[in-house]
């Protein structure tokens, strides 16, 4: 799991699950804000005909922040939506994943989070699979 993976996971994490897993770690590292949590918009783009030139589809809400631990390690948080506490936790996890605590955080927070999010996805995929159809064309009455 590299930085791209864990930042992506934290961005999409359900806030309550992330909160519970973070509380379970019992960590409260001291830090200073480089950029306090800020809510903004990101313009989501699509492609014409799925593969052609980009166009602007509409915006989504995103909350971001950056902080520095006492050790000097910098953490960035980018999360979907408007939850500033979630952005703070994402940035703390990002910073701690660059330190000695990485293995512990991976095992106690990131992996269970990934498992739970994957299970939610799998349940949806299983329901979609149950609605898969085979259409048969019938011979019509006319010539």
């Amino acid at each position: 799991m590299d930085r791209r993976d864990w930042m992506g996971l934290l961005a999409r994490a359900p806030a309550d699950v992330l909160d519970r897993l973070w509380q379970g770690l019992g960590l409260a590292p001291a830090f200073e804000w480089l950029r306090p949590p800020e809510v903004g918009g990101v313009m989501v783009r699509g492609r014409t005909g799925a593969t052609g030139a980009p166009f602007n589809l509409g915006e989504m809400t995103v909350t971001r922040c950056a902080l520095v631990l006492e050790s000097g390690t910098v953490g960035h948080g980018y999360v979907q939506g408007r939850n500033k506490q979630q952005a703070e936790k994402a940035a703390l996890v990002d910073a701690l994943m660059q330190e000695d605590a990485a293995d512990r955080i991976r095992a106690a927070l990131l992996e269970p989070l990934a498992t739970q999010m994957q299970a939610t996805q799998d349940r949806r995929a299983a329901k979609a699979a149950a609605t898969k159809v085979e259409f048969f064309t019938l011979v019509r009455g006319e010539d």
Partner: peptide, 16 residues
């Protein structure tokens, strides 16, 4: 809302 930027074009071929 301040605009943080624009996303990369989404890949609908990878849609779940």
């Amino acid at each position: 809302l301040p605009r943080f930027g624009a996303s990369l074009p989404v890949d609908t071929g990878e849609m779940r």
